[in-house]
Amino acid sequence: MKDQTRQILIHISAIIGFLSLAFIPFFQGKSNELFNPLAGREFFGYGLLIIIFYFNYCVLVPRLYFSKRYVLYFFAIIFVYLAFRQSGSFIIEQNEFLNRSPHQMVGKSMPPPPPMFESGERPTPPPHEHQPEGDVFIDVNQKIFPFLVVIFFSLILRVSSRWRETEREKMNAELSYLKAQINPHFLFNTLNSIYSLAIMKSDETPTAVVKLSGMMRYVLSEATTDFVSLEKEIVYIKNYIDLQKIRFGESISLDFSINGITNGKQIAPLILISFIENAFKHGINAEEDSVIKIKIDITAEELFLNVFNKKVAVHISEENKSGLGVENTRNRLELLYPKRHKLSIFDTEKDYLVELSIVL
């Protein structure tokens, strides 16, 4: 809504500025009257150009140019120009008629006729006194340049707008596809965790179900938008980590900390969880020394995520080995935070480290 309002204000300002060009002679001191016949004629011409601009922008380009009917579009432009030229000629002729009307001659004496030569012939009048048609033709054709500029400018703007709309639709479709891939991956992991608790008949199973319910509610309601409250995203991450604590208990060394204020900040949903999920997927084995460190620092303008896990021997299916969640998150970062994030991944034989900074 704000973007539409801004576009409307820009168009209104451009129209007012364009129409004001008709009064340039007055501001330059070439005319003593602001509303004079010349200014009125120019004002009418600029008004026609504005109508032609929006006619080409809203009708001809969408219906003919985008439909690849280029020949028909070309002839339509020629027809519009001829109509524009005829309108300009009509206004000029009307102005000349009014200037020559008897109402303007009341109280004024007619200029004396030019003297005759001895042969009885009168001298030929200067060209400008008997060729008003030529003046009309020149005045109208001087408009062909602004006419072409208006046509070209409206065409470029419409094509550019169409391109932006296409890119926006493409990005939204890609983001929806990426989210659709992330959500089943999350559901599989969390349900697998609760299944393990149920097998062990853990007393923490009801708590885990409640936390999973809250997480699923967040994914289905909040995470469907482009941006969510950072506070809710952090709660989602906490619930996920709590589920992992319930599942693995003391078998892992887990260091999780959050520093900073989340109020009033927004972030793309599920943009951090993939790195945290990846740490638990590759860093937990009850028979080995499992170490996971997760740190989130929040400043006034940026968020820093640091995820470290020691690599252990784990059995991972071929589907999960592909690193789909991390790769999708990398793509989402490129789409949602272009030139506003920095992602560094250090993958060695013994450990795995992710360092991410996002300008909120």
Rank of each mutant, 00 (worst) to 15 (best):
V59L: 11
K350M: 10
F75K: 11
S257Q: 12
R332S: 00
F186N: 07
T124E: 01
L34Y: 10
Q104I: 10
S322C: 10
Y46E: 06
Q4E: 04
E302M: 10
M171W: 07
R41A: 10
L155A: 15
I138M: 09
L353Q: 11
K342D: 05
S344T: 06
P184T: 09
R69E: 02
M216I: 14
L212F: 04
V307C: 01
I10E: 05
P269A: 08
I267P: 00
Q244R: 01
F26T: 09
N189L: 12
S67V: 01
L343R: 08
A208W: 01
R330W: 03
E231M: 13
A76M: 05
I294T: 08
E169C: 15
A22Q: 02
E222I: 14
A76F: 07
G260S: 02
E327Y: 14
G134I: 09
N183Y: 04
A76R: 02
D226E: 13
K108I: 13
G107M: 13
D255M: 10
I52H: 01
E165G: 14
P123D: 05
V326W: 01
I138C: 06
Q86K: 12
P184S: 08
I258M: 13
P62I: 11
E33Q: 08
G325Q: 00
N183T: 00
P112T: 04
Y54H: 06
I51L: 09
E355Y: 11
Q4I: 12
E33L: 03
Q86Y: 15
P111L: 09
T124F: 14
A14N: 09
E349I: 15
N95T: 14
N32A: 01
F308Q: 03
L155Y: 15
R168E: 13
V326T: 05
L220H: 09
E118H: 13
E96R: 07
S161F: 13
